[in-house]
Amino acid sequence: MKILLKTCQLLIVALVLTGCKNKTEKPVEDTRTIIEKCTDQYTFLSDSIKSALDTKRMMPRNIGKNGQTGLTGIYDWTSGFYPGSLWYLNLLTNDSKWENLALEYTKKLDTIQYWTGNHDVGFMIECSYGNALKKEASAAFDSVIVQTAKSLATRFHPGAGIIQSWDSSKKWNCPVIIDNMMNLELLFHATEISGDSTYYNIAVSHANKTMENHFRADNSSFHVLNYDTETGEVLEKRTHQGYADDSAWARGQAWGLYGFTLCYRVTKDENYLNQALKIADFIKNHPNLPEDNIPYWDYNAPVDENTPRDASAAAITASALLELSGYLSTEKSNIYNTFANDIIKSLSSPAYFAETGTNNGFLLKHSVGSLPHGVEIDTPLNYADYYFLEALYRQQN
């Protein structure tokens, strides 16, 4: 009996140790597998667009209604995401193939540094040249970052304290969208490189005004605010891509979470950390968030079996949460880290991650560009892939 009892005890210990070992190793194995699948997919994608290298449209953005890969030029707001994805593949694999391809596509964006026609130059240049600088120092690339920040700074209105998003029109006097929080990283980066605090101060001013005006009592964000450029008065609070003016457009909430998290990274201002936490809790605890944590395109949209999900919003959220969790106490960190990993697990599943050789080479299925405009509904999008790869990189590190 004693021998039998001792044998059972040893067996239980062995099973517990095996379970612990599997718990530790399984996520690593899963991550390695998904990275391998990412490289296979992007090999397929990059090979399929080689014929477009000498045209004005060379950046893969989506799949068009004709089933062909939708290509866009360098002045499209999404132009930095493909080279950015290539940089992350290089950082994840250390394969020089991806570095060479990333450099090739990054350098195509050189003239963007002088463009003052859109606030999205932050997306374009920070995702491409900014990620290139994670690989190695380059005075030439530093120069591109600073010059782009100068161009972006021309859209700043000191009286209102904000960076104008789109140009004025009959519809808008001075529109500012929540997405604009993402372009502040470029300004912070430019101050770090140059030592010129002008860019830092503009970013902080814009973040403060956004925190003051963009958010509702439940910590959800409006999409578009229309400002008086002289007084800073908010003339309207509207939406452009959401379900309604007072709804919570899913990708907009993700932009806000990511934006305030990066602001805390640079400034260590607790107000930004608290704002990021409020947004994270809004997303995590929303009653309309599906069980797999991939949101519908708008948190307030009517839901039925045909309501589109937005994998891009989920990928942005996961990446932001992984960074946010690093700034918190262990208990809180575990909560948001687990939420991020659960999102990544869902995105890595066959429900959202494309089978190799399908989806025209894009990684994720089921994203939404702008449902109210009937554009890019239930399709792969290059920025969904970008933030998914960034999340994998942050998870790995």
Rank of each mutant, 00 (worst) to 15 (best):
A153V: 06
H373F: 05
I344Q: 01
K134C: 07
K237V: 06
K365A: 06
L11H: 00
A311S: 15
D385T: 03
P372C: 04
K134N: 14
T154V: 14
T267I: 04
A311H: 09
A320T: 01
E390V: 02
Y82Q: 01
L133R: 15
I145Y: 01
A313I: 03
T154Q: 12
Y386H: 10
T78H: 08
T239C: 14
L71C: 09
I74F: 06
R216F: 05
Q253T: 05
Y296N: 12
W98C: 02
N337G: 10
N306R: 14
T154A: 14
R265H: 14
Y200S: 04
K278F: 07
T31K: 09
Y129I: 03
T356R: 00
Y387K: 03
A248G: 07
L381F: 07
V16E: 03
R216H: 10
I279H: 04
A318L: 13
T229E: 15
L187A: 09
D179E: 14
L235Q: 13
I63S: 01
R309Y: 11
Y299I: 06
N94C: 08
L152F: 10
K170L: 12
D385R: 02
G161W: 14
L347H: 06
H189Q: 10
V204W: 00
L392A: 10
I316A: 03
L91M: 10
C38D: 13
G67R: 03
L152H: 02
K21G: 12
G73Y: 00
N118W: 04
I74V: 13
Y336K: 04
P175A: 06
D120F: 00
V303Y: 15
L10D: 01
L389T: 09
T356L: 03
N62D: 09
S51T: 10
T116P: 05
